[in-house]
Amino acid sequence: MNPVNYLYLAALLFTIGAAGVLIRKNAIVLFMCVELMLNACNLAFVAFSRMHGNLDGQIIAFFTMVVAAAEVVVGLAIIVSLFRTRHSASVDDASLMKL
C-alpha cells in the first residue's frame, strides 16, 4: 500500500490547523485548529500502521484521541469561564498576567 496520498492529506490538514492557530483570535476556533492538527497526526499514524502491517500506530492514535478529549474538557471549561467574565473569547484579551 502506498501511503503517499494519505500523507499529503495529513500535511494539508496540519498546515491548515497550524495556520489557523497562528492567524485566528477566537479561542474556540483556535481549539478546533489544534484538533485538526492532532487528527492530521492521527491520520499519518494510521497510514504508517497500515503500511507496516502492525498496530503500533493505531494504538498511538487512540492515545492521542484520549489526550485530545481530556484537553478539550479542560480547555473548553477555561474558555467558557473566560467568556463569562470578559464577554469575549478572544485570546488577545486574556492578557492579565502580562507585564
Binding site: V21, K25, V91, M97
Partner: peptide, 13 residues
C-alpha cells in the same frame, strides 16, 4: 514575552 499566544506559537513552530 508580548502576551500574544500566537507569537509564542510561531516561535514554537
Amino acid at each position: 514575552q508580548n502576551g500574544y499566544a500566537r507569537s509564542y506559537a510561531v516561535s514554537m513552530f
